[in-house]
């Protein structure tokens, strides 16, 4: 491995790391939104919508992101729906992550004891207010560990977005391997940059979990 090669490659990797982070952030936001809607629809047992949510969760959880992305990027244009690689990547992550987030939120909601809702209703809260002010705050705390696990999972899942030509870290690494044949350097930097992204997030997640537990919500 040569130092000069590292110096030459660093800017491209730094740019790609930002691209990876950007797509991960957008994907996580979309997944969280989809997950929230899905979890609430299932928790409140909204007719019809709850069935749709159940089908969605099974489809999303039982298929790989790579296959979802291939369909979005190469399949959908045939029916006139042409999305760029960034859009495909975010939509794919949202579709995949939405079900994981939904499960996290739902387990959080289910873990709040029914007595909490009953007490709130007895005190004159409506069902929506009870959910908003009594159940949800506790559920958020209970769902935090699963949520942060999903965040890390989704960041790692972004590693496949190069198959739809999104210029992320893997894309850059493959590019350098192909053009310069500096396989060792390119892959070394790939590992280093993923560590730089994932390690701080896992440490932050661990700190957040400790904090939530100290808040006394968790069991």
């Amino acid at each position: 491995m040569e130092l000069a090669v590292f110096r030459e490659y660093l800017p491209a990797y730094a740019r790609a790391a930002l691209a990876t982070l950007g797509i991960a952030a957008l994907g996580i936001v979309l997944a969280t939104a989809v997950g929230l809607v899905t979890a609430v629809v299932q928790y409140a047992q909204v007719p019809v919508a709850r069935r749709v949510a159940a089908v969605y969760v099974e489809l999303s959880r039982n298929t790989p992101l790579v296959v979802q992305l291939f369909f979005l990027y190469y399949g959908l244009p045939k029916v006139g729906l042409v999305w760029g690689s960034g859009t495909c990547a975010v939509v794919g992550l949202g579709f995949l992550g939405g079900s994981y987030m939904a499960e996290a939120f739902r387990s959080g909601l289910d873990a709040v004891e029914p007595a909490q809702t009953q007490s709130a209703l007895a005190l004159g809260f409506g069902p929506a207010l009870a959910l908003r002010h009594v159940v949800a705050p506790q559920a958020v705390a209970l769902a935090t560990p699963a949520f942060t696990a999903n965040v890390i999972f989704l960041i790692k899942e972004t590693s496949v977005v190069s198959i739809v030509a999104y210029p992320d870290l893997v894309y850059v690494a493959k590019d350098y391997i192909g053009t310069d044949y500096n396989t060792a350097e390119a892959l070394f930097l790939l590992v280093v940059f993923y560590l730089l992204i994932v390690l701080p997030v896992s440490l932050g997640a661990a700190a957040l979990e400790r904090r939530v537990r100290r808040a006394g919500f968790g069991a």
Binding site: S159, L187, L190, Y194, L199
Partner: peptide
């Protein structure tokens, strides 16, 4: 665990 499986495969 810290690395994506794709990166493990490549390495």
């Amino acid at each position: 665990r810290v690395l994506p499986q794709l990166v493990l495969l490549f390495v």
